[in-house]
């Protein structure tokens, strides 16, 4: 586990690899600047972690307890706080600024964020069901078909795919490549798509590779 960073999705574009000439689809992410607002250690909290804050706001946007918490780190009012578990907190200090330079070009990262909310979505959109035929007298267009057997079991099994709320959920996209960084403007160019619309809050952490030594 290692410390990540909070950021905002700005949008997608493409850049070119100058050597091979291939076009690379990239998402532009504003990563930071983040401030370390709290450091938890084994002695004080029973576990080690670093809490960071992101996105400066007006003072009136936060409550007094929130402002009091940030005051301990002498940080400006920040909208989002997030904690990252880490084994080694010695390298961090309160009020320290973290930016895009936390990552190098070529690094592999995990990105989590909220997906685009699609509201109450039907079978086709939510579960990729097939559609019924539109013509030849058919009245079955977007219906689900059978949801199970009859008198036995006499009920629909739990977990049956049905229409319902789709999207607006926290997801993590794993093992995305950082193509380019701009430490001055705190920008990360990440190959591929990330959750949410432009403006969405993202958490970017070094990739969690299963089986790798921590």
């Amino acid at each position: 586990m290692s410390v990540g960073i909070l950021g905002t999705k700005l949008g997608m574009t493409q850049i070119f690899n100058q050597e091979t000439g291939t076009a690379i689809p990239v998402t532009v992410v504003q990563a930071g600047p983040c401030t370390i607002t709290q450091i938890k250690t084994q002695e004080t909290d029973g576990y080690c972690s670093v809490q960071i804050g992101y996105q400066e706001v007006k003072e009136k946007a936060l409550s007094k307890p929130e402002l009091g918490h940030l005051k301990k780190a002498s940080a400006s009012p920040l909208r989002h706080l997030k904690e990252y578990r880490t084994n080694d907190v010695a390298n961090f200090e309160l009020g320290q600024a973290l930016g895009a330079s936390l990552f190098d070009a070529g690094a592999i990262v995990d990105i989590s964020g909220k997906t685009i909310g699609r509201g109450f979505a039907g079978y086709q959109k939510r579960h990729n069901f097939k559609r019924g035929q539109m013509a030849h007298g058919s009245k079955n267009h977007r219906a689900p078909g059978s949801t199970g057997a009859g008198t036995t079991p006499g009920r629909v099994y739990p977990g049956k795919k049905m229409a319902g709320r789709y999207g607006g959920k926290q997801v993590t996209i794993r093992k995305l490549e950082v193509v380019q960084i701009d430490a001055e403007r705190n920008l990360l160019l990440i190959k591929g798509a990330v959750p949410g619309k432009p403006g969405a809050l993202l958490s970017i952490t070094p990739a969690n590779i299963v089986g790798a030594k921590k």
């Binding site: 949008g11 532009v28 432009p198």
Partner: peptide
């Protein structure tokens, strides 16, 4: 700088 201007400035290097 807003998001669109930032993306334009990144693209400008490759145009």
């Amino acid at each position: 700088m807003n998001a669109e201007a930032i993306i334009r400035s990144i693209e400008a290097e490759y145009l």
